[in-house]
């Protein structure tokens, strides 16, 4: 199995709201100092899923990331987890691409690599939360796609995917090559071993630009974005919270009950 995994560096989604600020003039998030970006958690699941398939039946895992900031760091992490190879897609022409532009870059890269059976993505990047790039890559490559998988099985060249749905789950069968996006229900992501970290540090990670993968500059970057960000701001949801107290928890609870009963529909 030749598996390609797409990963993206994101501002840590667990960053508490109090530390999250936006530059309203530039419409950009101001990353707090000293807080590094992380591999988007769903993308880490995609790497994990690839490793499990490889362990079960052998194969090679190639990781792709398009970006400049922290691309190297998250790539090393994926390699340390056990991925075989990586390519960083980095070019001024790719910067500030929207989902279509990013999918275009990734699909072109897959075409350049040529040989692949399975592409894995996260269900959504935990920064903009769009959840479109996987499906778009599949459309550009004209291959089947299943989104939000919780498990992947490969049997005699047929993929069996259980994916989550609003009220349960569904199982699909599809042929290869295919693209699958992973959801958190897949389980735990492994922590790289010391040996993994050492061998990852030794690996060469090539950087490819627009000319290497043959992308048309009119289809990538900020200028190609279809819908444009015009405003980014922090919504204010705060309410005035009345704290209920009492001489002991039981009394406080009794008071809270009265207040709940008063507002209960």
């Amino acid at each position: 199995m030749e598996i390609i995994v797409c990963i993206k560096p994101v501002l840590d989604p667990d960053l508490p709201p109090a530390k999250f600020t936006v530059d309203g003039k530039k419409n950009e998030v101001i990353p707090p100092e000293g807080v590094p970006f992380v591999m988007s958690p769903y993308d880490a699941l995609a790497v994990e899923a690839a490793l499990r398939i490889k362990e079960a039946q052998g194969g090679k895992i190639t990781v792709l990331t398009q970006g400049t900031k922290y691309a190297e760091e998250i790539m090393r992490k994926a390699l340390a987890m056990g991925a075989d190879e990586g390519v960083i897609l980095s070019d001024p022409a790719f910067e500030d691409s929207d989902g279509f532009g990013t999918a275009h870059v990734l699909a072109q890269t897959v075409k350049k690599i040529g040989k692949f059976d399975l592409i894995l993505c996260g269900r959504q990047a935990a920064d903009w939360d769009a959840g479109v790039v996987g499906s778009l890559i599949a459309e550009y490559l004209n291959i089947p796609v299943v989104i939000r998988a919780k498990s992947i099985e490969v049997l005699d060249g047929v993929l069996k995917i259980e994916r989550i749905s609003t009220n349960g789950s569904e199982v699909f069968e599809l042929g290869l090559p295919a693209l699958v996006t992973l959801s958190s229900e897949m389980g735990q992501v492994r922590i790289p071993s010391g040996w993994g970290i050492i061998s990852a540090a030794k690996k060469q990670v090539p950087k490819w630009g627009a000319t290497d993968i043959g992308t048309d500059p009119s289809q990538t970057g900020a200028a190609a974005a279809v819908n444009r960000l015009v405003k980014l701001y922090v919504p204010v949801y705060e309410r005035k919270c009345e704290m209920v107290t009492g001489k002991d928890p039981a009394e406080a609870a009794a008071r809270l009950t009265e207040k709940i009963l008063a507002i209960k529909p």
Partner: peptide, 28 residues
């Protein structure tokens, strides 16, 4: 952080207060 977006708040171990809530609501 949940208190920032709440109308009513109670700082307590839920194990000590929720049974009282259940009791009082059933009573009412």
């Amino acid at each position: 952080n949940i208190f920032k977006i709440s109308d009513l708040g109670l700082v307590a171990d839920y194990k000590t207060v929720v049974p009282v809530l259940i009791e009082k609501i059933k009573e009412s």
